[in-house]
Nucleic acid binder design. Structure first.
Lengths: 155, 155
DNA sequence: CCTTATTATATTGTGCACAAGTTAATTTTA
DNA sequence: TAAAATTAACTTGTGCACAATATAATAAGG
């Protein structure tokens, strides 16, 4: 009887621990889980936090409104994800959605006072995560740069 | 008027591109998107493919059954994710779910013939992805090892 | 103009992901 | 050995993620 009739062949390329994809997938979820307890007091989910990061950064550049498409581009998510996400955030009074008068296809997103003020609490989060990670800052930055490099290659 | 009344403070730690978390999150989704066109001909989603990877590897170790909890441990997912995932795969006739007689709390998962044979098609996938990635194998392995290292630190 | 194409957002349907709570079987312990 | 604790899997509810499609407004071409 041949080996493969018993399913005893070796397919090392198919082993879970050999796959970059699985490491990425696991670590990404693990990191999100690390954020959860810090975001819960702010009543935010992780994707909602990412939306606020983009809007807060826009404010620093004196842009107090972003279109939905600018947001989806920044977040690298599609409208099927972002539209309901923004609606949930609107219902929590974190931002407003207003249709542009110049071009009525466009919906502009602006932070509310509540959404802007949340930044004061959120600014403590990155440092808190670094502390609990026991990985030093150099390593985190190196990994981030390597990930961005691969992401660019795939884009 | 003070600077922060206009929201013009700088919060570089809150900038999207400075956050490891966002790079991980984006790249992980991007890699899954790379798998999708290759998995579609096999009628598999990415998490379903991961389940099969675990089961195929078990077969190589002459284990033709794994408990649900062994699967969740390998995949680092919780039962609320895995139970419905396995039911969908059972309904596609990729695997069987049988309650253990020794301990009736335990449900054992085994590949069907169809699930086992799918490995022959799936074994082409890792190489296909490497080819389209334009990143060389050394770099992929280095990144994978770095991710696993961080994952261990956080575990 | 008026049609055709494009763009911006929204909707629908499926499949994860996970917190929280449930149920039932087994193990531990008093 | 009966009560308490633990374990394994399931269920429920919310929130993404994305493919595919729809709708409506604007732009482009004839």
């Amino acid at each position: 009887m041949k080996n493969n009739e018993k399913g005893l062949d070796n397919f090392p390329a198919l082993h879970l621990e050999n796959q970059l994809c699985f490491s990425l997938y696991s670590l990404s979820r693990r990191v999100t889980q690390g954020y959860t307890p810090l975001l819960k007091p702010l009543d935010l989910t992780y994707p909602q936090y990412l939306v606020l990061l983009v809007l807060w950064q826009a404010v620093e550049n004196k842009q107090n409104k972003l279109s939905v498409s600018q947001l989806t581009k920044n977040l690298k998510l599609d409208t099927g994800t972002v539209t309901p996400l923004l609606k949930r955030m609107e219902s929590k009074n974190l931002l407003s959605r207003t249709r542009s008068t110049k071009d009525e296809r466009i919906v502009m997103i602006a932070l509310t006072e509540k959404g802007l003020l949340l930044r004061e609490k959120a600014k403590l989060i990155p440092q808190a995560l670094l502390c609990q990670s026991s990985a030093d800052q150099q390593e985190i930055f190196a990994l981030r740069d390597q990930l961005q490099k691969v992401l660019t290659l795939l884009a």
